[in-house]
């Protein structure tokens, strides 16, 4: 009796057919459920990815910033100057105040260097006596014109584009200079 009932589904195709129909219907519904969720998931993830990757995709351009009248930089000296990050957000606080080294060669000839060492971004310090920039992290050193003097940095200091307009020193700034984007 038991064996008979056990064998029945195999023997009677009609019963199987009905079962198959039901199974295939459920299969379809399951697949549809999965499919709907794939579509919905994609729709949900698109804005998420867009939100996160916006900063990856959107590269902001540099902006012209005034470092003030050129008279404050005596000829033949290199001085620290500070500007406010043009992309400053109200809650940035003092992290928006960015330093840079201004070298006035003579007249309206200027070089403005980023504070960041080209090795790993540490703040270089200017020493007027030896006319060297020295980095406190891994010992990189640069000459007064920004060229590489010694240590691990792969290149000279990053330089801002400089112009003098109406006796004011203007630089193109706003980005953290890195090897990928040396002109800050």
């Amino acid at each position: 009796m038991i064996s008979h009932r056990h064998k029945e589904p195999e023997k009677k195709p009609c019963a199987c057919e009905g079962a198959d129909k039901a199974t295939s219907r459920r299969d379809f519904l399951f697949k549809m459920g999965v499919g709907l969720n794939v579509v919905a998931g994609a729709m949900v993830s698109l804005p998420l990815i867009g939100y996160v990757m916006s900063s990856f995709v959107k590269i902001l351009p540099t902006k012209g910033i005034s470092l003030g009248p050129i008279d404050q930089f005596p000829e033949g000296t290199t001085r620290l100057a500070t500007y406010t990050n043009p992309y400053r957000r109200p809650w940035d606080g003092e992290t928006a105040e960015i330093p840079c080294w201004v070298r006035r060669i003579q007249g309206e000839q200027f070089q403005v260097f980023a504070i960041n060492c080209t090795h790993l971004g540490c703040p270089v310090r200017w020493f007027d006596e030896s006319k060297l920039f020295m980095c406190p992290c891994h010992g990189g050193a640069f000459y007064q014109d920004g060229s590489h003097a010694s240590g691990p940095p792969p290149r000279g200091l990053y330089e801002y584009k400089v112009s003098v307009v109406n006796n004011e020193l203007i630089i193109d700034a706003g980005l953290l200079p890195t090897l990928a984007r040396p002109n800050a």
Binding site: M53, K58, L60, R89, R181
Partner: peptide, 12 residues
């Protein structure tokens, strides 16, 4: 760099 910093420079 932009992705890591959430913008062009280290900030909030």
């Amino acid at each position: 760099v932009h992705l890591m910093l959430g913008g062009p420079i280290i900030a909030s």
